[in-house]
Design a binder for these strands. Structure first.
Length: 428
RNA sequence: GGAGAGGUGGCUGAGCGGUUUAAAGCGGCAGUCUUGAAAACUGUUGUGGGUUUACGCCCACCCCGAGUUCGAAUCUCGGCCUCUCCGCCA
């Protein structure tokens, strides 16, 4: 959420930012409602002031056992009535204004390329070389079937389409991957490990920006109005909702493994086969709470922490800076990490590293006591996948396959695979 | 799930219709004293919003939301959360 005061004073800049994202919001209406509301509130507060004065007089007269209080009570009553006539007008505007405000996106950083669509994104750098084998590569579906490590058919029987059932070495690989990532981020990169609830309430979802915009893409438990986490970003960022940090406690860095649940509504027909777009996937997430001055530097280091996962897994990837049209609603700047899948011949988005500046912090009311102003100021929040598993598994299978269809395990992962150097079909 | 108790400022804790603009203590900050520090003493000390060139003034906030009243931290109703006991349970 942007500061309404900021929008008021920088209307043109905000309008341009919204336009750069390819959105069309009635900012004029928002500003008009805001002005209208302030006028009404000022009027109402003036009346309240008078009423409070009268009440005080009445109190003193009653205590002094003086007569005449009755007349004043009548006056006060009249004021109360006037106030209650204004109240509904304000209450009509408030929710409209709040909703409009929640739907204004963050303003992109000046370094973000202006444009819309993937083609406007900017490739920052690439790492690793795609394998050039002298045999025919199998895609991840063929490999999964060959090795017997993923059973999509039975997953559909158990739940429905686009769910995954990892079996045997596949399940083992999944566990190895997130343990490896958690160890890397806690031991080498200094993040604190957390294991949060998988269900969160509406306030938490609103604070990180999933609501109200993306409600249809979330799994919701109607009896309790709880949501299944679409990413660990939600529970982990909300750890500090309505809190004030000491400046010396920043930056605060967390990493968390959770399953992630997404309905993927509106993406029917896209990536319907395999692991690319599934309703439940595993992810290790990185979340930071930092001072405003440091947030863009922290974004770069967050990105490097995520990149190292792919480097150690020996997966070729590229870093993409998203353009204004592609940066997510709550973010001011975002890098995607895309791993190369050589058989599918596609770049797979396995990580998204974003700086949300004070956008989430304002919604979530997360502050720190600044030594500069000695007042509570909003922190900046960042998060990134470190990394998302299902798609990383695609890249891992396709890049590390051998001519016989077995998968060689990268060195960094060996300690997590009981020393097994490859995954093979146990029945062959 | 059932019964009871409770949720007050950074913390402890009083107040249970109008001298409360929320007592007192602890903590924090500033000053006096001191070579320096501690102690002691003095002062100060929340958040959000509106308005003002500014000093300031005003409104709201005692878990959240409605209500009663001229007036609510205090009374009523609904919700959320915490603790204790019971039940159920991996």
């Amino acid at each position: 959420m942007l500061d309404i005061k900021f929008i008021r004073e920088n209307a043109d800049a905000v309008k341009k930012a919204v336009k750069d994202r390819g959105l069309d919001l009635g900012l004029g209406t928002l500003l008009k409602l805001d002005a209208e509301k302030r006028k009404l509130v000022a009027e109402m507060e003036e009346l309240k002031y008078k009423k409070n004065l009268l009440s005080e007089q009445i109190a003193q007269m009653m205590l002094g056992q003086k007569a005449g209080a009755k007349d004043l009570v009548g006056d006060a009553k009249a004021l109360s009535q006037k106030i209650s006539q204004l109240k509904p007008k304000v209450e009509e505007i408030e929710p409209k204004l709040a909703e409009m405000l929640l739907n204004v996106p963050n303003i992109c950083h000046k370094s973000v390329p202006v444009g819309s669509g993937r083609q406007a994104n900017k490739i920052i750098r690439s790492w690793g070389k795609p394998p050039k084998p002298n045999f025919n590569l199998r895609n991840h579906l063929e490999l999964a079937e060959h090795l017997g490590i993923i059973d999509f058919t039975r997953a559909s029987k158990i739940t429905g389409s686009n769910f995954v059932l990892f079996m045997g070495q596949g399940a083992r690989l999944e566990r190895a991957l997130y343990n490896f990532m958690l160890d890397l981020h806690t031991k080498k990169h200094g993040y604190t490990e957390v294991f949060p609830p998988y269900l969160v309430n509406r306030a938490s979802m609103t604070a990180t920006g999933q609501l109200p915009k993306l409600e249809e893409d979330m799994y919701r438990l109607k009896d309790d109005d709880y949501f299944l986490v679409p990413t660990a970003e939600v529970p982990v960022t909300n750890i500090h909702r309505n809190e004030i940090f000491k400046e010396e406690d920043l930056p605060k860095c967390y990493t968390a493994y959770t399953a992630c649940f997404r309905r993927e509504a509106g993406s029917y027909g896209k990536d319907t086969r395999g692991l690319t777009r599934v309703h439940q996937f595993d992810k290790v997430e990185l979340v930071k709470f930092v001072t405003p001055e440091s947030s863009y530097d922290e974004l770069e280091s967050l990105l490097k922490d995520a990149e190292e996962v792919l480097q150690l897994l020996e997966l070729p990837y590229r870093v993409v800076a998203l353009c204004t049209g592609e940066v997510s609603f709550a973010a001011s700047k975002c890098y995607d990490l895309e791993a190369w899948a050589p058989a599918s011949k596609t770049w797979l988005e396995v990580s998204s590293c974003s700086n949300f500046t004070d956008f989430q912090a304002r919604r979530a009311n997360i502050k720190y006591r600044s030594s500069r102003t000695n007042k509570p100021e909003y922190v900046h929040t960042l998060n990134g996948s470190g990394v998302a598993l299902a798609r990383t598994v695609i890249a891992l299978l396709e890049n590390h396959q051998k001519p016989d269809g077995n998968i060689s395990i990268p060195k960094a992962l060996l300690p997590y695979m009981d020393g097994k150097t490859e995954i093979g079909n146990p029945h062959i």
